[in-house]
Write a protein that binds this DNA or RNA. Sequence first.
DNA 1: ATAATTAGTTATGCTAAATAACAACTGAGT
DNA 2: ACTCAGTTGTTATTTAGCATAACTAATTAT
Lengths: 169, 169
Amino acid sequence: MRGPVRTRTARAKAARPSPGAARQAAPAAVDLGPLGGFIGYRLRRAQLAVFAGFELALREIGLTAGELSVLVVIARNPGLTQSDVCAALAVQRANFTPLLHALEADRLAIREVLPADRRSNALRLTCHGREVLARALALHERLEKRITACLGEAGRTQLIGLLRKLETL
Amino acid sequence: MRGPVRTRTARAKAARPSPGAARQAAPAAVDLGPLGGFIGYRLRRAQLAVFAGFELALREIGLTAGELSVLVVIARNPGLTQSDVCAALAVQRANFTPLLHALEADRLAIREVLPADRRSNALRLTCHGREVLARALALHERLEKRITACLGEAGRTQLIGLLRKLETL
DNA sequence: ATAATTAGTTATGCTAAATAACAACTGAGT
DNA sequence: ACTCAGTTGTTATTTAGCATAACTAATTAT
């Protein structure tokens, strides 16, 4: 069963110093060479950290980053079709279907067949969906706060600007 | 067979205007709402673009981003163990094994059992590996050039600094 | 009508990433 | 010398993200 509130895998095993632990010699500081200057590498490492933070922040709601993004877009643009959302978020239509069905199964969103064009569905949030979204956004806000604390307000704004430019590469 | 030069999937289908093409009404500009300010979202979009650029740039060599990063690290730090590389690149040891074996099968790297500790392997590049790495780095340079053209030299430096900060979130 | 397109779906494959379990090996303490 | 906890690399398995091809149903152009 996949309710709107899902508990992910329980992590955190509390790494004890452990008695017979062989104390690691200083990690020897591996030289990354040119890799450290690769934007792609830095993006991957940063994304790993941010996504870990995301999962931590939204654990109690149990929404995926992808699911949250879809909820936000539907909330802001009720009546969009699946293709519209897919185009907006750069998701393949084929991959969007199961994601949306999951949201529907959780009673967060509904697909409404349009009489005008019976091929496409108008997407809307349920009341419950709006509530969950509001909670999720509040939780997510904490993550962004953490990021702002890490980068500074100016740094955060700069970063977004730079990443947006990269998207048009 | 998986040679050092692999041709990935052939894309680029040249979207023709096509005769009976229904001219899309203006895409209606979906409102992303707060999503546009999510660092995680921006990271994903940027990474998509950069990785697409990576694949394009390295197509003729056929190295994965992960593979290239491993080659760079081994080249710079000959004799590292698998665990060392994994720690340096934030890769699971279990996932590293097949990656390394692929590099070995392509005669780019070798595993040398240490008499001192017969559990671990010292990793080195073959001559061929060094050659391929040099070519790969040259090709990758083009990508970084494109990125610099997109962000400016200052922007590129800023971005790397900001992403590094994010890694420690 | 008929041909071409579009919207959504299904099936499938690939890669990255995570986890658990295991054998071989090491080293520290008794 | 021996035990035992810990490490190294491996295998197997699972999951998520992204991609492509092929299909149905509905729509539009000619």
